[in-house]
Design a protein around this nucleic acid. Structure first.
Lengths: 145, 145
DNA sequence: TATAATACTTCATCAGATTGAATTATTCAC
DNA sequence: GTGAATAATTCAATCTGATGAAGTATTATA
């Protein structure tokens, strides 16, 4: 299997998994994606979230409302600028989400534990660089709209 | 960076890239995902596609119509059973799609070419197993709805 | 051959999310 | 301090895609 095909398979598998998780959590794919962005950022303003997702402010207000009502995120007033609202992930009271990733983590560990340190370093390097490339390409696509 | 965190970053990057591509192509994320499934399968019936995507038949009719009109897929009568419609990817007349993946491929090659055979084998093994796990977990999630 | 089952499509309807304009609260610039 | 700019929200209108029932064509069964 060549590299491109491999990447394609991985991408499709990730996307389908992502959507299955969303459905299980009772979220749309967009909302789940937004939750991913929020979690990764460790908290960001509503406006920044709008920028990341490419949607306008009122759509984000609605989106954050849905996530908040479902218990996946919360709004926190920004102490530095009180016009701003910080959106943070709120994983505390959602054992279902934790459960899904515990299952996935167990499966991943089952084969990851068989790699030696050298192999793990190679994998880490590959993943890190792949993420870099994907981010760069994503940004390029967004620019060119 | 631990394995779980790495996987999480990769997943988010893939999903955001996937959506950016969709937007660039003028497709919704769902339609783009469907196109991925169609391409990966190498052609499948409308019914099978409905099964893969978890939507009903009429939704798939509409979806395939959109992809067909946009030039990304085509319907082919199944010679074995003329009730059936085979849906195939139609990449021929869509240079935009090819262009995006050419750019991505170039970036990927830039660092992939620096791995030796042993490292490439490790990476291939990792990706293959990760895809297996993701597919298994996706199916498990779909079952448990 | 008549009947039932399958595969897809069509159509009307519905639910959901997105948009844009107007509104409120806060901060910045002069 | 006043006016302009910024950040988020609310609301009405709209758009998109999904659903379910009915319809058409084809194949399987008896």
């Amino acid at each position: 299997m060549d590299g491109a095909r491999m990447g394609w398979e991985l991408s499709t598998a990730v996307v389908l998994f992502h959507e299955a998780v969303a459905r299980k959590l009772g979220l749309s794919a967009v909302d789940h994606k937004a939750l991913g962005v929020i979690t990764r950022s460790g908290g960001l303003t509503a406006g920044a979230l709008a920028g990341e997702l490419g949607m306008n402010a009122s759509a984000v207000t609605a989106l954050v409302g849905r996530l908040e009502r479902a218990g996946y995120a919360r709004r926190v007033a920004d102490p530095a600028d009180r016009r701003r609202v910080l959106v943070e992930a709120d994983p505390g009271n959602r054992p279902d989400l934790a459960g899904i990733f515990a299952d996935l983590g167990a499966d991943m560990n089952a084969f990851m534990s068989r790699y030696d340190a050298r192999e793990l370093a190679t994998i880490a390097d590959y993943v890190t660089r792949t993420v870099e490339v994907l981010r760069k390409r994503t940004e390029a696509l967004q620019q060119s709209l």
